[in-house]
């Protein structure tokens, strides 16, 4: 469904991605793990079209989208939960959700998705008329996930969605992710919490300073001694 072939991305002189290739099949949950600054967010931003690739190609359902503008990719069904949540601070919760459903013009469909979002995260319903910046960090994270689902994406890119959440919300968030996966949503997940990510995922890639150094079934990666040592806190 999503195929990335040898992409290179640089920020000025600095080469952040040095020829990255990976695939995500329809219905899969794939995770990319790596240390801070390895380039995980850059990969997701490249897939969304928020940074330009100097080299390489990106295909979505066989269509070459390497040079498509971001809004075009969104219309094809790619959705991003960005790093740092990126809630619109002065829009209300309901308006943030409406923005998530921007490509859906049928108002009734939007309304029913809104109800689904509220049943997924009931707290958002209580807060629907509050502006984004007044939500707590955890509430903003839920809103970011709910907002990215409003467009009924075919693939959803999630960047550190559990970051800064209380353990109970981390559990909750992973439950949501696994549920989405069961419903057949294709997911590309980037996580600091490598243990949880590998538990939930089908396959995983390990990223080190802009290069993919390992790729395998998630279960096997979780048992790999190198991965254990570097990302799962020893043993």
């Amino acid at each position: 469904m999503l195929e990335v072939r040898g992409i290179e991305v640089s920020y000025g002189e600095f080469l952040a991605l040095r020829g990255i290739s990976f695939t995500v099949q329809e219905g899969e949950l794939v995770t990319i793990i790596g240390a801070n600054g390895a380039g995980k967010s850059t990969i997701l931003r490249a897939v969304m079209g928020l940074v330009k690739c100097r080299k390489g190609k990106i295909f979505f359902n066989e269509e070459d989208i390497t040079s498509s503008p971001t809004h075009h990719r969104a219309r094809l069904g790619i959705s991003l939960v960005p790093e740092g949540r990126k809630i619109f601070p002065d829009l209300t919760v309901a308006e943030n959700l409406f923005m998530g459903a921007y490509i859906q013009e049928d108002r009734r469909a939007v309304q029913s998705r809104m109800e689904e979002a509220f049943s997924l995260f009931p707290v958002l319903k209580e807060r629907q008329n509050q502006v984004g910046k007044t939500l707590s960090g955890g509430e903003q994270q839920m809103l970011a996930i709910a907002r990215a689902l409003m467009s009924r994406p075919r693939v959803i890119l999630m960047d550190e969605v559990s970051l800064g959440l209380m353990p109970i919300y981390v559990e909750e968030t992973f439950k949501v992710i696994e549920n989405l996966h069961r419903q057949g949503v294709t997911i590309l997940l980037v996580e600091q919490n490598a243990r949880k990510a590998l538990q939930a995922a089908n396959r995983g890639y390990v990223l080190e300073t802009g290069e993919i150094v390992l790729s395998d079934q998630a279960k096997k990666l979780a048992l790999n001694p190198q991965v254990k040592k570097a990302y799962l806190g020893g043993t």
Binding site: P69, H71, R75, L80, F88, D90, L91, E95, M99, Y102
Partner: peptide, 18 residues
């Protein structure tokens, strides 16, 4: 709505298909 969103964060706005 998209115009207000754009004034706050154009990049995120574009990622929703605007």
């Amino acid at each position: 709505l998209a115009m207000r969103a754009c004034a706050q964060d154009p990049e995120t706005t574009s990622s929703f298909g605007v």
